[in-house]
Amino acid sequence: MPANKKYLTPSTSQRFAKISAAILGGLIVSVMFHMALAAWFDHVTVIITSTFSAFILWAILMVVAFLGKNGWKIWSIYLLASLVFFVIFYFGNQTNPLV
């Protein structure tokens, strides 16, 4: 039984944006989140925990990317979240440098 046409994305650019945001954007946000955590907390514990939690977070972000109406808006949200996590990571490394 084929999918109902009204639920499918008609635009090729929107389809590309959603797929790339789900795969790449979700991965970038997931990795940057765990890097930000590792900068402020015990980095060994965060890295060990991230082997499981990063995959779970990535899977959740993949689902969220396909729930949105506009793929480019999802990309902008993911890039903004990555930038925020990068700033947290940067200041965490400045405050707590690894020796």
Rank of each mutant, 00 (worst) to 15 (best):
M1Y: 09
N4E: 15
K5P: 11
K5R: 12
L8G: 12
P10M: 02
T12L: 07
Q14V: 01
R15V: 01
F16K: 14
I19F: 02
I19W: 04
S20N: 08
A21Q: 06
A21T: 10
A22Y: 01
I23L: 12
L24A: 09
G25W: 00
G26K: 02
G26H: 04
G26C: 01
I28D: 09
I28C: 11
V29D: 07
S30E: 08
S30A: 13
V31R: 03
M32D: 04
M32L: 09
F33R: 06
M35P: 00
A36T: 02
A36F: 00
A38H: 05
A39D: 07
W40E: 11
F41W: 04
D42Y: 00
V44E: 11
V44D: 15
T45F: 00
T49D: 09
T51N: 10
T51A: 13
S53C: 04
S53W: 01
S53T: 13
S53K: 01
A54L: 06
A54T: 07
A54P: 00
F55G: 14
L57M: 10
L57V: 05
W58E: 01
A59Q: 07
A59W: 02
I60T: 10
I60S: 11
I60H: 02
L61H: 09
L61M: 14
M62V: 12
M62H: 05
V63E: 10
A65E: 03
F66Y: 13
F66D: 04
G68T: 14
G68R: 03
G68E: 03
G68Y: 03
K69Q: 08
K69A: 13
N70K: 08
N70S: 07
I74Y: 06
I74L: 12
I77P: 01
Y78H: 13
L80Y: 01
L80G: 15
A81H: 02
A81V: 06
A81N: 00
L83G: 15
V87S: 15
I88H: 06
F89E: 02
F91I: 13
N93E: 09
N93T: 10
N93K: 10
L98Y: 15
V99H: 14
V99F: 13
V99I: 11
